[in-house]
Amino acid sequence: MEEREKSLAGTNPGNGSSPPLEQLLAEITIDGVDPKCSESDAEGVVTAKSDVLSGGSEPYIRFVVDEVQFAVPLRASLEVGRLPGITRLPNLPPWVSGISNIRGDVVSIVDLKRFFGRSASTGTAGGHMILLHNDCMKVGFRVDRLAGIASLGDTEANLISNPFTKGDITPYLAGVATTDASLLYLLDVELLLTSERMNRFRRV
């Protein structure tokens, strides 16, 4: 019953018409699927928040792909949320899920798990999306879970190692940070969006 009430509370965010990003993230995390990590994540959000407030370091959005924690700079992302409805297109590699209508814009959705050479996102996984952008591109990335906001300073170790045994993603990594005894892989959005794979659909 308790579980149900919690979910119910989640259905009515009604007190504010558009909650700020952190609040949204926190909410998504709290009413998240996996009870065992939602607790720790919720704590993570709280600490992250206070970090943001104290200033001095850059806020990152944390997310999970195939049980590996990643983070991207908040400034590189336009919005986060649940995965919108996707329209599939023919003649595309499997890692492009299709296109979505996000606030009137047609945006392509890339399955990050598949892009990293893992198996396709299905079912419970891949239910969320982060919209990343640079100067010339705007792409929605499908991720397993959003895990709140973390604030990271420059002091983090820049040790780069591949988090997956299969599929090399080191070209897209900016570094690795340690938080709460777990590793946080920082994605370099610019490298990701300017990579050859992402740019193979340019008009010739």
Binding site: N91, V106, S108, C136
Partner: peptide, 8 residues
């Protein structure tokens, strides 16, 4: 189709 998929 958006800024990413310019040609499909």
């Amino acid at each position: 189709l958006g800024s990413h998929l310019q040609y499909v």
